[in-house]
Write a protein that binds this DNA or RNA. Structure first.
Lengths: 230, 230
DNA sequence: GAAATTATTAAATCAAACCTTAAGAAAAGC
DNA sequence: GCTTTTCTTAAGGTTTGATTTAATAATTTC
């Protein structure tokens, strides 16, 4: 039920892309950065996106071109983010199927508000705010403080470990394939041949075990992935 | 719950003024239309406003002139709404103390979002009232006097340093990501690779340390942000 | 039981995040 | 205008976490 909302961010300027990603993330969505038009097209063909943010001036393939492709393909909302101030550019984009148009330099709050409102218009998808606290069995996570306690003991996790646990705990019972997990936590594509996940999972399990040896929290679904034991 | 937020709308075109009023109203604020510069000045002298929207081309008295008056008078947020597309006009307005600049034709949602975001930025000053005093451990902050004492010693902080400490102290335990912190203190977007936060944090820590070497106040949560040690 | 997949562990390397200092730039105060 | 304060930038150094590697152990599936 609580599926992640994935937003593709097409912007060649690295700093701005990073900023947009952080805005998206902070609103509770999942950003995926693309740094050129051609890179973006690869992701667009790969899967469905809940929203696309497009910078108009791009290397490889213009933003206008991408907008065409996206709108031709279907019903994915698009927000243009551009330095082009001319009304004509704005009108073209909106006529061309964009849902909104933000000019640079933009205001952080504004971007956030527009993304929310756009997703709302597209219906169904309610904006879920970060909960004050998640509990599962005797695991308690307070996102605001990035704090985790298990069995009433504080568990000190690194950022990665925290992200993993947070993901699993936020939908107990759901099986996360390694690739899913990797892409969510690391925000980069998963190339299969990686032991990193195993090691990190091991660390998480260890720390959970230290806090409460009587309980097994993370279960391995053989050949499929991991989930919180329910 | 909130007392009403009054917004003065200075726009000579009756239709546009009506539209702006309805936008403001729909956002839950209280609009007051003014149709000329001179009329606006009367209202401005009468009372305090939570925000002013100004059209630049006005009969009676130019928008630029009004902007001067408003900013000279105090800390009321101003949004310029204008048909003037030139960057120069925009720059002049923003330099002159305007908080935002929207070009006509404008998007209803955009105006609404910008008003919201602007009020939010000004929030501390106009809407929410500050507590008389914040205490945490042996830190005492008196916001009205911008005064900080630690361990009963007065600590002299610069404006930025004060803002940082204030933010952290006002919700101890909460982890502030660098981006959050930066945006709240500097009021501008954070582009990731900046160490001015580090430097300022270092300064704050130093000063706290000088006042009380036995206590560690600000904790670094690696990869996540900073928080008051609890 | 054999093969494939996953776990665990520790050590070594690497990279990112962070801290501090100092000096130049900008702003504020006199 | 000059001085002082504050802010920012840059550079070098430190710490911490992430990753890789590898060797061994445990599971599951067939």
């Amino acid at each position: 039920m609580n599926e992640s909302i994935d937003i593709l961010i097409i912007e060649d300027d690295e700093a701005i892309n990073r900023l947009l990603c952080s805005i998206v993330k902070r609103s509770g969505y999942h950003p995926k950065p693309a740094y050129s038009g051609t890179e973006a097209m690869i992701y667009l063909e790969q899967r469905r996106w809940d929203m696309v943010l497009i910078d108009l001036m791009l290397p490889g393939m213009s933003g206008e071109r991408i907008l065409e492709e996206v709108t031709a393909a279907g019903d994915c909302p698009v927000i243009i983010i551009s330095a082009k101030l001319e009304t004509q550019s704005k009108i073209n984009a909106l006529r061309g199927g964009a849902d909104d148009y933000i000019t640079k330099p933009f205001d952080v709050e504004e971007v956030s508000a527009r993304i929310d409102s756009c997703l709302r218009r597209y219906g169904g998808r309610t904006v879920e705010k970060q909960p004050a606290e998640i509990n599962y069995k005797d695991i308690r996570i307070v996102p605001e403080a990035k704090q985790v306690t298990v069995n009433n003991k504080t568990v000190k996790l690194t950022a990665r470990e925290y992200d993993i646990l947070y993901l699993l705990v936020s939908s107990p019972g759901k099986v996360y394939a390694k690739a899913d997990l990797f892409e969510r936590v690391w925000n980069e594509p998963y190339y299969g041949d990686d032991n990193t996940i195993n090691v990190h999972l091991s660390h998480v399990r260890n720390k959970l075990y230290e806090a409460n040896p009587d309980e097994t929290y993370i279960e391995t679904i053989w050949g499929m992935g991991y989930k919180m034991n329910s």
